[in-house]
Design a protein around this nucleic acid. Structure first.
Lengths: 166, 166
DNA sequence: ATCCTTGCAAAGCGTTTGCAGGCTA
DNA sequence: TAGCCTGCAAACGCTTTGCAAGGAT
């Protein structure tokens, strides 16, 4: 697990923090230091971190912060519509504070993930009633493939049968 | 968990079983009754079942079949490229024996899932080198929303803060 | 006969929960 | 002050693993 993370612009993080505080007031939810820290860490990070990654980062300055608290707060923030879960094939829950419409690049080998925007996806209209009364709300588009480092490693490798995750 | 499942056409299941047997021969993997049963149950089901659902179904006629065996075989079939994991936000692993290009309708409340085809997604070309050397291989499109039954239940309900999964 | 695969049991990992004490509003 | 929230520890559910016995080739 990498602790390297890409920062989001401080201006945007500030906007999102204000929105977070408004949401707390509106929903009559207490604005605790723990919630603010978790939300801020998540908002500042473009890397779709796991709960554990957030926890590790916060522990540097707050060694007593327990992991279950971060889990509980993550759930709260999801309920408040301030962050969302990222869809994946397996592995631990990943979080995303970017609520704008966007797509994801996902490496099928290492799970590396990055935001991507392609206006073509956003212009495609949602079918209104697709099938059996299903009410479509939004697209969730992942572009899967190989990140540069896994593509490099792959060259010349032989696939094994068991023992190697695809 | 529901044991109701939608059947795939026997003709298609037969084709896929033949492909499964070829793949076993090609990769020199033993064709056991367990593997055949798990693959067949999966191929016959259009409902994106979990490993446990497959196991429950097979147990009816094979009470001694252990769950870990189904997990191991699922992993094998994924490695053989005969089935794939379905992307989801959370919850247990779901499997899909349909390897044709297709999209999914996903209910964000109950997890109900159904295949969907929209030629627009399939015609959109993959960008070749999107970002930082990323090699795109395929799209994974989920259309999330509410299935009919959750849409019906939702009318008139008040959302709670904690205690209700979104 | 070989050795891949299964069956069993146990461990592993990520996540959730119950309860008492603490802190925000 | 009231009661929401946290901290702690323990439980939980899904998944994986080690090892000996079994079965396909």
């Amino acid at each position: 697990m990498s602790l390297v993370f890409n920062l989001r612009s401080p201006r945007l993080v500030g906007q999102w923090l204000a929105r977070f505080e408004d949401a707390c007031r509106l929903r009559k939810i207490r604005l605790t230091a723990q919630r603010r820290s978790v939300f801020e860490a998540l908002a500042a990070d473009t890397g779709h971190p796991t709960v554990e990654e957030i926890h590790l980062r916060l522990k540097k300055n707050w060694p007593s912060l327990p992991l279950p608290t971060v889990y509980r707060i993550a759930e709260d923030l999801i309920s408040l519509n301030l962050i969302r879960r990222v869809a994946s094939d397996n592995g631990p829950l990943r979080l995303d504070a970017n609520m704008e419409p966007h797509q994801h690049l996902v490496c099928r080998v290492c799970g590396w993930m990055e935001d991507w925007r392609d206006p073509r996806w956003e212009k495609t209209p949602l079918p209104s009633l697709l099938s059996r009364g299903f009410v479509a709300e939004e697209y969730d588009v992942r572009i899967s493939g190989l990140c540069r480092s896994c593509a490099d490693k792959k060259a010349g490798r032989v696939k094994s049968y068991r023992g190697e995750k695809q």
